[in-house]
Amino acid sequence: MDRLYGTALRLTRNPDEAEDVVAEAVSNAWRRLEQLDDPNHLDGWLFRILHNTFIDHWRRKQCRQEKEVSLDEPETSDAAAFSLFAHLHQPFLLWIGQPEADFINQLLEQDLAQAIDALADPYRIVLVLVEIQGHSYDEVAHILDVPSGTVRSRLNRARGLLQKSLWRQGQDAGLTGHAKSKSGRVSP
């Protein structure tokens, strides 16, 4: 239940909507239980229903808001090519510390959730389906009804944008460079 809710929360960014999506998905699954051919596949089956339920919700919401029903990609800057590692890695410090590892260890769960939630829908949805749910590019392409190449390009941008956002958050929290020792954060 916590994985279903957590995934729905990352997809919707809204606790009430996440509850509705999970409840509707479970209700759909319960009604179609006889279609589950192998109980060992229950997890994947449930999540597939969750994703489809979310996409239905998302499209209905788009219609209500009288926006185009599409996952058109918003304009992004060169943030898509941003590499957190390239900004943090300091090879000459190899034997006395690894700033990039410290940075990741000191990121808070809420920093990550906030950075993911800040991504525009086309990027966030693909990132959640691949990195949280572990779907292949083809599976995501099928779920979203877009070409596999679109999944790849959105995923690349999502990762760049996410890493840039984390870098900014890290700077604000004093996790970058020499300032990191002042942050007082502890590793998870």
């Binding site: 916590d2 809710y5 769960e109 993911i116 949280i132 749910q133 572990g134």
Partner: peptide
Amino acid sequence: RIAATGVEAAPTRL
């Protein structure tokens, strides 16, 4: 770390 954000305690109401 990103994957870990996909787990949240489901509310009692849900």
